[in-house]
Design a protein around this nucleic acid. Structure first.
Lengths: 242, 242
DNA sequence: TGTACATCAGTGAACGCGCGTTCACTGATGTAC
DNA sequence: TGTACATCAGTGAACGCGCGTTCACTGATGTAC
């Protein structure tokens, strides 16, 4: 969360000072991201960022009121990077090839995670800023959900993704935030919200297990296993080929 | 990993000194566990453990050569607690009620996680001791897998859990460690290894998402959602009722 | 266009903190003969 | 059973570290009149 101080200091944009200021903020984030990638969250300190920039540590307080504020900025960036790589992958497929879009998006997520393990961990590992995500991360975090949701929606419109749940164990309206979900996946049936959330959980569960070493001894080729998982999920989601 | 030093110091068991020594080790772990539960991993320091025990910090080095060694001990304990609560839940069901055993085990895992969030995080959150799990954790970590595997095996023997995979995308033998898996789930078809691993991934993915706040805004009643997820998984695993 | 003033990026020293780990030591408890 | 010696739990001081954050400051850059 940006402190009032920081917001105050931002001033009007466009002026030379504001431009320089934004450039400096970007430079700081860039260095912080590099250090994060090298040593992980716990090895990321304001002092080291300052050192790398040939600044005195207190200078950073002109830009970030607190270490957590810098971390939050990195989290937002990470969500955005992940979101945009997912969006690009989706856009690279034929619009009516739902299975292709689904697998491409999921693979983009996993590729991003493997290429930026520490940024993935920053987002999906143990939370560090308390258990409540800062509100400004929400919009960025929703981008991946939106991509997957849209694929669903499109498949639904073409007559796929219409399987009802096998049985009535509890009413979906009682345990899901259907209003929120319907805005992310408009037109998708409430029953399919369950499957979409399960698919989502499965993808991120898979990546976390893989990256955190919990598949050691059981999965020896995660690439192939992932393909298989995506195929099975597509089957249950009713968006597979043919 | 226990240092050679520690192993050397352990001496014969049964002697008064060895008894006192083991008691002290347990006392240290107990205090460490309490502090872990209160403040999480990052708030767990040797110095504070020592303070709580009215000892000088260097005294702990008689028992643990390093902070990581203490952490490893806590990890092993956590896996064992989780494993035994899972085993107990399974044993409390009728032996041929596979769906009951499945849901009871899964719910026991989730209950344990929610009751001991920091211990869950220690095991399934971001790894802290490097990406290779210390070898002595492996046996304890396998207990949960064994419970789930046994349910599968029993179901299989009674004629359930026999669905073949829907299609041949890659050979299971190429991406799974079938030898290891067959020892955990004897008699289960290789195709079902995939489903078992997916179910496993789904359960832990669900719990992590829930605990780390990623269901905020989409799932409002995690208990009910979890029931639904277990039901759907049982369906795909072919161990549901009737 | 020039001058007086306000803004603000960056400095440097300091505060206060807690941490893991080492090391030479004391003194009680156990063991061997 | 008693004595000489070995073991080892716990002490206390110290080393060396890096961290986040505050604060009074300098001096360059911008702004208002």
């Amino acid at each position: 969360m940006l402190s009032e101080c920081t917001i105050f200091l931002m001033g009007k944009s466009g002026t030379p000072r504001a431009v320089a200021r934004n450039a400096q903020i970007e430079a700081i984030k860039g260095v912080a991201r590099r250090l994060l990638a090298e040593k992980g969250v716990s090895g990321l300190s304001l002092r080291e960022v300052a050192r790398e920039m040939d600044l005195v540590s207190s200078a950073l307080y002109r830009y970030f009121a607190t270490r957590d504020e810098l971390l939050t900025a990195l989290i937002v960036d990470a969500y955005d990077e992940l979101g945009s790589s997912c969006e690009i992958a989706d856009a690279g497929q034929r619009h009516d090839d739902y299975y292709g879009r689904w697998t491409a998006s999921a693979k983009a997520i996993r590729s991003w995670a493997k290429a930026q393990p520490h940024e993935y961990t920053l987002i999906f590992g143990t939370p560090i800023l308390g258990y409540e995500a800062p509100p400004e991360t929400v919009k960025s975090a929703a981008r991946v959900a939106h991509v997957l949701g849209t694929i669903f929606h499109d498949a639904r419109e073409s007559g796929k993704a219409v399987k009802p749940l096998v049985d009535g164990i509890g009413d979906v309206n009682d345990f899901l935030e259907v209003e929120t979900l319907s805005s992310v996946m408009p037109g998708v049936s409430t029953d399919d919200y369950v499957r979409a959330l399960m698919a989502w959980t499965q993808i991120f569960g898979f990546i976390s297990f893989e990256m955190f070493g919990h598949y050691e001894g059981s999965v020896k080729n995660a690439d192939m296993m992932f393909d298989r998982v995506l195929y099975e999920l597509a089957q249950s989601l009713d968006i597979s080929h043919s």
